[in-house]
Amino acid sequence: MGDMAHAPQQRRRFLNSNATQRLLAFASLIGLIVFYSLASPNFFKFENMVAILIATAVTGILAVAVTFIIITAGIDLSIGTLMTFCAVIAGVFITMWHGPVIVGVLAAILMGGLVGLISGTFVSRLKIPPFIATLGMMYVAKGLSLIISGLKPVYFNDTPSFALIAMGSVTGAIIPGFNIPNAVIIFFAVALLSAFLLNRTILGRYTFAMGSNEEAVRLSGVNVDRWKTIVYMVGGLICGVAGVVIAARLNSAQPSLGQGYELDAIAAAVIGGTSLSGGEGTILGTVIGAFVMSVLVNGLRILSVPQEWQTVMTGVIVIFAVYADILRRKRA
């Protein structure tokens, strides 16, 4: 897929640009883990590690989705409620229409792609600022979820295999006792695939280029509108995956859930070194960022720190991470 002429430049970016920030995020993640392990015997237990992994999976997938969009210097506020909308779509196909599970899953993911495509069109062709276009889409997706579900959760009780998508364990079947929930495996698979898209394909190259200097890309003859729409569509598809995972985890599509999740995802991407001004970011960084957020909260919970303070600490970490990013830029 890669165009050979661009490969060296690609590699250089991969190595240098975000390395410090990612290193910093990674160091704080290790630091947090070491610290919590010393502070409580309950932290570094297999059971709690699984709790952290599963708590990260959904936010992590959303963070990967939004990373694509932030790199183009855009933003997508609709990812949280879009996830919910896709979950409800899975519920419609599987529970209401008694369709096969696989059809429901595909429908949910494709619906995510379709909504992403619409958001992307608003942004690229109609020139509506991403913040506003996706804010609007956030409400549309939320409203549609409520309408379609009739304001009630849609349960997947007739199809026990659906819950296994998130809560079953492929690893447990291979290595007995090593029960990593599938939701986590899906998260890592989405991350790997996205890293490939971003670093090894023309889509990834244009994603970075549009974020760095959109006008230059346009002038060099690239159909910016089309590629930008595609990026939003990819983000939407990934949100569809998140929708399937959360529905499978809860064994239900909860129509009023979702708002607020976009902010956690955006924070994870930023902690991981994705620049809100576009042109910079990595999937690995985002994955680390998502873990920083969930490990932080999990550890504070393990230490019985009151919930108000958990929230304060999360905020402090986000500000810290962004400040570190600014420092790095100044030095560079």
């Binding site: 309950n42 237990k45 059971e47 709690n48 709790a51 599963i54 708590a55 999990n298 919970r301 393990i302």
Partner: peptide
């Protein structure tokens, strides 16, 4: 997530 962490 809270319930799972508390179980740990």
């Amino acid at each position: 997530d809270m319930l799972q962490t508390d179980l740990a």
